[in-house]
């Protein structure tokens, strides 16, 4: 018998701290598989953010720079410029990238830095107790929007994949979901494409991955997973928003 599915080499064989049903683990695995496929593990430098994603230095078998509070894209710029032969990616949540680090991500994207950004959107600040994020859906109750997000007071959720796709420096921008086997296979394909663009030196590549946060949504893992496919995919439509190869 042949082993047809195993843990990717770029992932350490350790238990993660993620809650049951959290998609961070799945997205970690897809990123590790892409690293294995391109054989870049030995010269990859990951840039971690703040939030639940911060512990990726403990889960990926690569070198990692820890860059809290939204600065990952700026730190990744420095890493890539200092070591242009290395493969550099950032892994950031929505509180980190779309709120605290908006300036950093927009300017790194606009400069067309040759890095890959993995943006995990779970519509809330996971680690700090489920506060409202810029990506929180309208009507969603969080610890700082107990009556639900209100459009007139809080604005509408930010669609980062679309926003960044308008910038000249962006080579690839896509949104994916990992809630079903079909979406997951597509996510795998898009993450590999984003990695290939950096390997080929095409420029800034961006992946927004929709993720569940069962604990802070107050749901069980299966209902939270279903919400990603229903409510989240309805507002944050998965798809490729920019691809320089098609221009």
């Amino acid at each position: 018998m042949k082993q047809v599915f195993k843990k990717p080499e770029s992932l350490k064989d350790v238990q993660t701290h993620f809650c049951p049903g959290c998609h961070h683990g799945t997205i970690h695995r897809l990123v590790a598989e892409a690293m294995d496929e391109f054989g870049v593990q030995q010269h990859t430098i990951g840039v971690a953010s703040v939030g639940c994603s911060v512990f990726l230095y403990g889960y990926f078998d690569i070198d990692v720079v820890e860059s809290p509070h939204g600065r990952a894209a700026a730190v990744a710029t420095g890493v890539k410029r200092a070591k242009p032969d290395s493969f550099v990616f950032t892994y950031q949540g929505d509180g980190d990238l779309a709120a605290i680090g908006t300036a950093e991500i927009i300017h790194a994207a606009n400069r067309g830095e040759d890095i890959t950004v993995i943006f995990v959107n779970n519509t809330t600040y996971g680690m700090t107790g489920g506060q409202m994020a810029p990506t929180t859906l309208l009507g969603q109750r969080t610890s700082t929007s107990p009556y639900g997000r209100n459009k007139s007071k809080d604005g509408a959720p930010i669609r980062m994949a679309e926003l960044l796709s308008q910038l000249e420096g962006v080579a690839f921008s896509a949104r994916v979901a990992v809630d079903s086997p079909r979406n997951l296979m597509d996510a795998k394909k898009q993450i590999k494409k984003a990695f290939r663009y950096q390997v080929e030196g095409k420029g800034f590549s961006f992946i927004e991955a929709l993720s569940a946060c069962p604990t802070n949504w107050g749901m069980n893992p299966l209902s939270a997973n279903a919400r990603v496919g229903a409510e989240m995919c309805d507002y944050f439509k998965p798809g490729v928003y920019k691809n320089v190869e098609n221009l």
Binding site: M1, Q15, G25
Partner: peptide, 19 residues
């Protein structure tokens, strides 16, 4: 049937598949 969809969906990489 060894389709490995369970392993693909597992967030904890707790499943291995042989075929």
């Amino acid at each position: 049937i060894g389709c490995a969809l369970c392993a693909e969906m597992c967030p904890d990489v707790a499943i291995v598949v042989f075929k």
